[in-house]
């Protein structure tokens, strides 16, 4: 049998461990949530069905034009469209931004378009 003082000492250690561990858990930055904590939902109420999809934007490197890039492109779609791309030469990024303007009618003037292309080349460019 453990003595009373030994028992208290071990119990204190255990508490200390738990507190320390939970602190380090809270401190860590956000990582992908496990499936059961995911806010995305699907509900059926009588004849009505509804889904909810949580969107979050990926982080992008700091560089000139980032503000214009994020505020413009997110008008229509997630920036993940860019995260998933490999590196491309200037002419490819320029063609992509032009496609958004001429084919999809995105309201982007030429000055902003140029800044967006430059930012894309900075973060995902290759030499031609």
């Amino acid at each position: 049998m453990l003595k009373k003082t030994q028992f208290i000492f071990i119990a204190t250690l255990c508490c200390l461990f738990l507190v320390l561990h939970s602190c380090t858990q809270q401190k860590q930055p956000d990582i992908a949530k496990p499936a059961d904590e995911n806010p995305n939902t699907f509900t059926v109420k009588g004849s009505v069905r509804e889904i909810f999809i949580n969107h979050d934007e990926p982080d992008f490197p700091e560089a000139e034009g980032k503000e214009i890039f994020t505020s413009t492109c997110t008008m229509c779609h997630t920036l993940r469209y860019i995260s998933i791309q490999p590196n491309f030469p200037h002419k490819t990024w320029e063609a992509e931004v032009n496609k958004m303007i001429t084919k999809f009618h995105a309201p982007i003037d030429s000055v902003r378009a140029g800044k967006i292309v430059n930012y894309l080349v900075t973060i995902k460019g290759v030499k031609q």
């Binding site: 999809i53 949580n54 969107h55 979050d56 779609h77 997630t78 993940r80 469209y81 998933i84």
Partner: peptide, 8 residues
């Protein structure tokens, strides 16, 4: 495997 989420 998620490529994008808006639209999915």
């Amino acid at each position: 495997i998620m490529l994008t989420d808006r639209p999915p």
